[in-house]
């Protein structure tokens, strides 16, 4: 047995030597595929397959009973019909869209201002501001939510004290989560606070790529600061802007952690953003089919945004690869 194995081993290595060039060419061709294969398999198995599966589940009645039997019942598009005529889901969609628009708009606006500011301040202040931003960026989301929860605590929260002290009205024992508009304002602060550092620092890095001479030439020609920004700076950083816009949209439309943890894992219906709704339907009410259908709606909306993102990223990459 051992001997036979040896002989076979020798024979095949001999063959390898004889057919050298041909074998090598094949190996060279196959090598990149062999290199990407493990990563590809993991991504397809763990992300690709569930994504297809999500669509499949969204066409099934998949409740508690089906969970136990590990088998859903095919019902076509009925889940979609159910949620799209459900006033609650339409409220969820509307809330999510408004929430996303406000959050993306605010984060991008403030980040742009800070990036422009970074360009204009003195060196030590610039270092201080970037360091401060990196610190905030580094703070993980769950601890961040907890610390904001404490800041906005109705009894001993420092925000209520500050607002009262500085004459914004009587905020002693003010509960921020009674009124969903105010609650969402708090969530917006958490999201925007967390998003600004990445956006501002990336934009600033992009702004430093704008050639100094172009700006100076425009200034000599009498352009006002706003005109310089609009006509010189903006066109150059436009691809970066599109990328950051789409990334922010994708993040803010999928906000879950902030709502869930801030409201102690029991958000009431007013606070259902689409990701929260889909989670609630699936894991709290055990209507996995409905949850999946709303997740499909979420993925579909985000897929449209992603196209812009992917296109601009590829465009930037090609420039890099030149």
């Amino acid at each position: 047995m051992g001997v036979a194995g040896d002989a076979r081993g020798r024979a095949s290595s001999g063959l390898h030597l004889e057919a050298g060039p041909w074998r090598q060419a094949l190996a060279r061709r196959a090598l990149p595929y062999a290199l990407i294969a493990p990563a590809l398999i993991v991504i397809v198995a763990v992300l690709g397959y569930p994504l297809v599966n999500l669509v499949w589940i969204s066409t099934q009645k998949y409740g508690f009973r089906e969970l136990i039997q590990h088998q859903g019942v095919f019902i076509g598009l009925q889940n979609f019909a159910t949620i799209l005529t459900d006033p609650q889901f339409l409220y969820v969609i509307r809330t999510s869209l408004i929430f996303t628009a406000v959050n993306v708009g605010l984060s991008m606006f403030l980040a742009t201002l800070i990036a422009l500011l970074l360009e204009r301040v003195s060196r030590p202040v610039r270092i201080l501001l970037s360091a401060g931003l990196v610190f905030v960026w580094a703070t993980p989301v769950i601890p961040a939510v907890n610390l904001w929860q404490w800041m906005f605590d109705y009894e001993f929260g420092v925000v209520n004290w500050l607002l009262t002290r500085f004459g914004a009205g009587d905020y002693i024992h003010h509960n921020w989560f009674e009124n969903p508009v105010q609650g969402f304002a708090v969530i917006t602060i958490i999201v925007v606070w967390g998003a600004i550092p990445f956006l501002a620092l990336t934009l600033y890095a992009g702004l430093t790529q704008v050639p100094r001479e172009l700006v100076e030439a425009a200034e000599i020609d009498g352009a006002r600061p706003w005109q310089v920004f609009r006509n010189v700076t903006l066109p150059i950083v436009r691809p970066l802007f599109i990328i950051l816009f789409s990334l922010s949209t994708i993040w803010d439309f999928g906000v879950f952690n902030q709502v869930w943890v801030l409201l102690n894992q029991r958000p009431n219906k007013d606070y259902f953003l689409i990701a929260v709704y889909s989670f609630q339907e699936s894991f709290r009410v055990s209507k996995y089919g409905l949850g999946a259908a709303s997740a499909v709606v979420m993925v579909a909306i985000l897929a449209v945004v992603s196209i812009f993102y992917i296109r601009e990223t590829i465009r930037l990459t090609n420039e890099e690869l030149r």
Partner: peptide
């Protein structure tokens, strides 16, 4: 690039099942 855009919150349902 594209796969990073898939919202994880959406995939949690099929992954669990």
């Amino acid at each position: 690039i594209a796969v990073q855009m898939v919202p994880l919150n959406a995939l949690v349902i099929p992954i669990y099942l």
